[in-house]
Design a protein around this nucleic acid. Sequence first.
DNA 1: GAGTTTGAAACT
DNA 2: CAGTTTCAAACTC
Length: 793
Amino acid sequence: MDTPERSKIGGTPLSKFEDSPVFNFINSLSPIQPVKSVDSIHSEQSYLQPVSSIFTSPHANLQRESRFLIRNSLSDFSKDEGSCDNVDESNLCTGVQNAVRLSRCTVIARENCSAICSLNEATVDPPDECSTLPSNLPHSEHYDSGSPNHNTTPWYGIKMDVTLDIDDASVELVHFVQNDLDKRKTLLASECEFLENYPLEQNKDEAVGCDWVNLISDNADVPLIFDSNNESEACKGPSEELGDTSKPAQDLDNSQKTQPDESFGPCVQNVAQDPRVNCSAENGKEDERAHTLQILSGTCQNQALLSSGTSDQIQSGHKVESQQQRGMRRRCLVFDMAGISKKNLQNNSNQHSSSSLLPNENMASDDKCSRPGTSQAQCVLPGIGLHLNTLAAASKERPVTQEMLASGKELISMPCPVGPSGPTTSGWKGKSLAVEKDASPTENNVQNLQIMHDDASLAPALGNGEELDQVSPKKKRRKSENVGESEACKRCNCKKSKCLKLYCECFAAGVYCSEPCSCQGCFNKPIHEETVLATRKQIESRNPLAFAPKVIRTSETGQEMGEDANKTPASARHKRGCNCKKSSCLKKYCECYQGGVGCSISCRCEGCKNAFGRKEGIVLIGAEEIEQGEHETDHCEREKDKLDDDGQQHASVKIDENHSSEGVLSMTPLQTCRPLVKLSFFSSAKPPRSSTLSVGSSPWLYTSQRFQKSEILPQHKLEKHVNTVLEDDTPDVLRCDASPSNGVKTTSPNRKRVSPPHNGIGLLPSRKGGRKVILKSIPSFPSLTGDVSEDYP
DNA sequence: GAGTTTGAAACT
DNA sequence: CAGTTTCAAACTC
């Protein structure tokens, strides 16, 4: 960053200022203080970046938020003080302004941090001490490197310690903020008075603050970067922040411990600490924050962070998204960093383990144990059905630790329920982010996990007793099915793939195989983590989305799915779509069906009868045609059914279309939107393997496809529907046109897997034009407008 | 529990 | 990029 600038903010040498009692006092007061000097952190961060990136997202959020919280809390005071009035940051966001105002404290603190970290730490780490700041000031020195709490933890190694310290600090800060706002206020008030008493120093402070502000205003990047650094580290516990903040102070401590593991996901931690309750409740918040992070930072990207950091409002608004992104990052990061993360995790886990998570070592030693044994608590947690997809999303995180896997599934799945609402709540963000698990149709409610996705999302939770299922895999499966497949923990029965290919559900879900698995020659175990990671990378290199959730919930409506089994909530779709030919999408062979989502345009299925929603919507036309074609092919048989169905289904279909159209439409918008978000996530990610249609393209292609289809099809659809409704009065020719083969082939490009729209990873700006076109095309459809409007804020 | 079916994943 | 093979889940008996 701008260390030199900081060293001399406002032209006042910090050293002098630091020496001043005011400085010390401020430091003691300021909760925000980074544990270590920004520079050091930054450098370290760069070093840790990958790791931090994994963990960071969450922590970053935490710190940031904690910071903001503090700032906010302080802002009032600062405003009162008016010392920072000179800040005119038309340029700056209000949040920045606030930050700036606080800057006296915060900035100084930070600057001081660069110069004197120990002081800050001392003040920061122990909230209690804050109350006793005056006395603390001198004592702060004791905490030379790292928070006292962390000093004891060699786990991560020095660098890791830094992150941990930060996290802890952030957590504590948050906690402190919540619990000790009053104290702070009093302190601040006293501080203000104190400052008043010392105009010179105050001026310095102001000068510093002003300079700082100026710096910020001048270089938005600077503050951002600065934040980013902190955030990057802080990212570790972003999601948790909210959760932590929301959590009572009690949890905070634990959360802090767990935070390092955040890669696993807040849920896990939470679960560990507080079995589901916290997770469920907190997850939503966390998710929201995650969304904010994602949006703001993409994943800790400085700019994004900056933007986020600039405005608290933004954070609040986008938190959900950020989390999702975070979750995504985590995964990616985890995978990438798995090795590192693992170590860290272990360390963390060990630390955390005390609280909740089992140590990885144990995990490693006993993969099997990992799930059931690792933590009963974990196991105990009823996994919400995590979709493979979701698992996949989370999986990356999980892979890091068996804990994640075993417990992770459960834990994540459960709590994570970031819930449909979580991700969903925030418009596309939520949608895009919201990775569904493959919640079984029954589970739809549960489905939303973030995991992402974030997080989430992920894992198919076994229901409550996935472990109970230790019975034969089949039984388990069935059991899980009953519960909802997603619920069931992933269990594989691989014999030849060594559980290192996507054939393996566990691997695909990003989970290590565990006891329940009856796989042979399994390498998907913590012991072989390196192999697993390497394999993952390979697979991802081919298909960046390979481990992305297969089912993406575009909208909040996800819950609806559960309710309306027949109607697929437009919100949720399989990222790539299915290619069913014989199952009519009525069996779990169909990934869409399995995921509890309706088929969409992206599906190339034939004779789709997906109970959750047939191919629908404009896009569907082709699919529908196909379907109809098949139906027609089957038509003889089905006509009766159709008659029945038509009366019912078609009606439903129309309805669905509305939904679907919405869904589709929503999809597009989501896609468009998502891409933005996901881009951050998947930015590196390429379009799905098959698809030249890159992810990014996918949406667009998707749209384009739609567009084509829409133009061509609409009439066909109408006709078809009409026909279907009318009972195939339409001439065979039309049908033929509609016939799957034709339709598919004509649309053939689509036929093969279009890039997953939902993933929306690829949001190529260039393709926006396509989107627009689509949008226009969409209007013709009734639902489109509504959907679009919805999708597009 | 064994065998078959199915469709995704992987391969060519 | 299309076609084929491999694989394991899902399903049936």
